[in-house]
Simulated assay, not measured.
Amino acid sequence: MTAAPTLIRLVHLSDPHFGTENGDAVEAAAAAARALRPDLTIVSGDLTAEGRSQEFSAARDWLASLPQPQIVTPGNHDTPVWNLPQRLFWPFGRYRAYVGQPAAAGFLPGLTVRSLNTARGVQPRFDWSKGSIDLDAVRQAAKEMTVATKALKVFVCHHPLVEMTNAAVSGGVHRGLAAARLLAEQNIDLILSGHVHNPFSLALPWGDGKTYAVGAGTLSQRTRGTPACFLTIEAGPDTIRVAVQEWTGAGFEQGLVWALPRRRLGNYEKEEASLPLS
């Protein structure tokens, strides 16, 4: 038996869009993340603007400057925008070459995390930027996470599974509501995403009401009414504190903070001592 960590700290970054990145903000965010020494760094997609090799090369260098361990998932901009054959037959080939697998899993003491890719190269609808999710893969991820009964359970994807009424764009995830409900009913604590470029926090209406959809903003120049920003997440025994770290042009300052009631953990049991990624 291992004593429970008193606090789990996550840094959640998203949508740097290398090629249209805010250069000062992405460098400062990496420095801030290193200073925070998080238990896990999460990057929820749209590393690039157009899926070009040079953009992925810059993104890879930036990821290398962020604290380890990491969970990274692709976004809709991480497919080749203008190369239609690649979009059709090899949409995440460059992502795999420069970053790694589009889905990942891992355990830390007091934490279990899964990511799934909601981006698609092409879809049978006009707007290919919108998301889609495989419910069988969601069920499998939830099943794997529920084994770690006492851990903070975190699910990561690029597109929000539920729509934000104040967001400038829609995630439009096929089967998104069904996936969100499934995760809530399996007591997953956090569903982390990006895509809309506006930070948010929302308690989902299913299960015990203590599953939260949380979105990071952007670190690019493509802001949509809110500054470039990232999130810090600190999970204690009773509360999950989500804070927006806003770029001022000279540094990051804490903005909006959400204090989210956490479901009871009971006695902690060690699941794994390290974070293997797959």
Rank of each mutant, 00 (worst) to 15 (best):
Q86M: 13
Q123L: 13
M145I: 08
L190Q: 09
N267E: 14
R175G: 03
P67D: 10
T239N: 04
A25W: 14
L47D: 04
K143V: 00
H12E: 14
A243Q: 15
A180M: 01
P205T: 14
V162T: 15
Q86G: 07
A119K: 06
W82P: 00
M1E: 13
G110V: 02
P124S: 13
G176K: 01
E253T: 09
P276Y: 05
A32S: 13
E21K: 07
S274K: 08
A29W: 03
P16K: 06
S65M: 07
D127N: 12
A168N: 09
T48M: 07
S193C: 15
N76L: 00
K130T: 11
G194D: 09
A32F: 09
R224W: 03
D46H: 12
E163H: 08
K150F: 09
F126Q: 11
E271L: 09
R37C: 09
P205R: 14
R60T: 14
P80V: 07
A64L: 06
P109G: 01
A64R: 09
A119H: 05
V242R: 12
I42H: 12
N83W: 14
E55K: 15
A179C: 03
I71E: 04
T48P: 05
H195L: 01
T73S: 13
D78V: 05
V138W: 03
V99N: 11
C229H: 12
S44C: 08
F89G: 05
E50W: 10
A32E: 13
H158V: 00
D208I: 10
A213F: 01
R241Y: 06
L182V: 10
P261W: 13
K130F: 03
A228E: 15
L219D: 11
L219E: 12
L265D: 14
S57Y: 11
W128N: 04
R114V: 07
L111W: 08
E271F: 11
S132K: 03
R263I: 05
G251M: 03
R34P: 14
L135W: 03
L66D: 02
A178D: 15
D136Y: 04
Y212H: 05
R60G: 04
A141D: 07
S170M: 00
F92A: 07
T79I: 11
L84M: 12
A178Y: 04
Y268G: 01
E269H: 13
A32T: 12
G19Q: 06
R224E: 01
R224A: 00
L66G: 02
Q101S: 09
E27F: 09
A151H: 14
S220Y: 07
L190W: 03
G45E: 13
R125N: 08
Q245G: 02
F18C: 04
T146I: 13
R222P: 04
G172Y: 01
R139D: 15
G100S: 04
D134V: 10
A105C: 06
L192Y: 12
T118R: 10
E27W: 07
D238Y: 05
G131N: 06
L63R: 07
E234D: 15
D238G: 00
V122M: 07
E21T: 10
S278Y: 00
